[in-house]
């Protein structure tokens, strides 16, 4: 065993421990903010595993997207709704917990069977690590993985349009209408006033209220 292999084994062990520990912390800790920060640790450890697998671009993308965007978004959501509130005890909670345990155990056994059934020997021996991973990834994206790639972009576009529809409601209603009065498939919104053209550039309500 030379130096590189030793470093790989040690870092694999450390990354695995960090990942499992952080993931258990995400699930088991009571404080949701700790869970969110530990989730960032899980993502970083996963990107470290990608690095060990010679997938450097995927590792960097993992950090950029999951740590830099998804985790930050989760933290933002927690910070904006972080109200100290005790939850009411739910009747029949054990049914939900039992169902969750069943699903988790099923998923775990499925993955375990998959790990045991797959013959991993072929991937470790012959295949050489790609030197220029970005070129390889690009070629795959525009040949045999074109459809999933384009579908993912359509999905992102849909999410973007949805976010804009919700965020663009500048005319929030003054009184809360009951769900019965609200026309179906619309969000509560006050009728728009025609804005005078001479109002100029400072027409948005945020900038005038300073």
């Amino acid at each position: 065993m030379n130096l590189a292999e030793g470093v790989q084994i040690v870092s694999f062990g450390l990354l695995g421990l960090a990942m499992i520990g952080a993931a258990l912390g995400v699930v088991l800790l009571q404080n949701i903010v700790y869970s969110a920060f530990l989730l960032g640790g899980v993502f970083i450890s996963i990107s470290g595993l990608y690095l060990l697998l010679n997938a450097d671009f995927v590792a960097a993308a993992q950090v950029l997207i999951y740590v830099g965007a998804v985790n930050v978004l989760i933290l933002f959501a927690i910070m904006l709704v972080n109200k100290q509130e005790d939850f009411d005890p739910i009747i029949g909670r054990w049914v939900r917990q039992g169902a969750t345990a069943l699903v988790c155990f099923g998923l775990f056994s499925l993955l375990g069977v998959m790990v045991l059934q797959t013959s991993w020997s072929s991937s470790t021996s012959g295949a050489k690590p790609a030197v220029d991973t970005t070129v390889l990834l690009g070629e795959h994206f525009f040949s045999d993985f074109l459809l999933p790639f384009e579908l993912a972009s359509v999905l992102l576009l849909m999410a973007l349009v949805g976010a804009i529809v919700i965020a663009r409601r500048e005319y929030l209603p003054e009184e809360i209408v009951s769900p019965q009065q609200q026309p179906p498939l619309t969000l509560p919104e006050r009728a728009r006033q025609p804005i005078a053209i001479s109002a100029g550039t400072s027409s948005s309500p945020q900038s005038t209220s300073e």
Partner: peptide, 8 residues
Amino acid sequence: SLSSIAPI
């Protein structure tokens, strides 16, 4: 990608 860690 590294500079996106600092905001956390």
